[in-house]
Design a binder for these strands. Structure first.
Lengths: 154, 154
DNA sequence: TGAGAGTCATTCAGATTTGAACAACCACCC
DNA sequence: GGGTGGTTGTTCAAATCTGAATGACTCTCA
């Protein structure tokens, strides 16, 4: 229980803090941009993107929840909001009576097409365009390792 | 207004998505661990850490808000919570009558010392220990570039 | 077939966050 | 001094998130 904790050394601490601060700052900036441009939150935007990419522009709630990294109850809430805005509709799943399909409407697709450029611009300006190709690759490798472990154990 | 948007190519998209998913998954895992270990939220933990490192274990609200990347109003709320738990106290700033100092109490320090090892363990297990020294460096470089721009423009 | 275990999405209450509005204070300049 | 603009921290209502509990459905295996 009381093993000596393996504290982070200077390099490790620097890496962790940089990652933590940056992810929060970037999240804040993205949220701000999406709100101003379209009255969307970042989770909402992420939902629209995933649906747009899915076959038939539709996905099961649970699958969507995993993909977009949103709690199931948060997803229920957000889909309701998006439904009110006319960007998404709910349909019952033909193959599983319990299941619910979130379906992207045409209005939702248009909304996404309208908003995406500005969003990508932010992602570029603050992250992607600041990094060299090598840094980009290194980051991807690193993030994917962590993601894999977290998805496996989650 | 309608310049061709510079979409992300495959490598860029992979980097962005990996970063986004990972930061959310890791955040979730950390939140879970802190809650279970000490009933703390991640923002609360971050506040305690910053205070513990500050000279006199105290900081001005605004400075703390910037450091921990928490909104001013969220900080006000969280400091109130931490005060109720006896981990932090408020004091008026001697040099500026408007100012408020958040001060870490002895109980707050002890709480932090008790919780920190488990928290670091999670950060290691899912992120730091998964990466080579080179990957760590690359990530730090990358994150810091973004952080700098966001702090400058925020 | 039918009981039992697991999955699916939702619900609810409570906690937290957001952002604008606000009052109090500081600093500078005329 | 007295104004003016900027800063500081808080407040408030509304929005969102959390996590446990729930009801409805599916699947498995005997």
């Amino acid at each position: 229980m009381t093993d000596d904790p393996r504290w982070l050394d200077e390099t490790e601490m620097a890496a962790w803090r940089a990652f933590l601060s940056t992810s929060h700052l970037l999240e804040r900036r993205i949220e701000e941009q999406l709100k101003a441009a379209a009255g969307l939150t970042h989770p909402q935007y992420e939902i629209l993107v995933r649906l747009a990419e899915a076959p038939g522009r539709q996905m099961r709630m649970t699958e969507l929840s995993r993909g977009a990294v949103v709690t199931k109850s948060a997803l229920t809430y957000q889909i309701t909001q998006l439904e009110k805005a006319g960007l998404v509709e709910r349909a019952t799943c033909p193959s599983d009576e319990r299941g619910v399909l979130a379906v992207l409407t045409d209005a939702g697709m248009r909304c996404l097409e309208r908003v995406a450029p500005g969003h990508v611009e932010v992602v570029r300006e603050y992250l992607i365009d600041r990094l060299s190709r090598e840094e980009l690759q290194a980051m991807t490798t690193a993030m994917r390792k962590t993601e894999a472990v977290l998805r496996a154990s989650g």
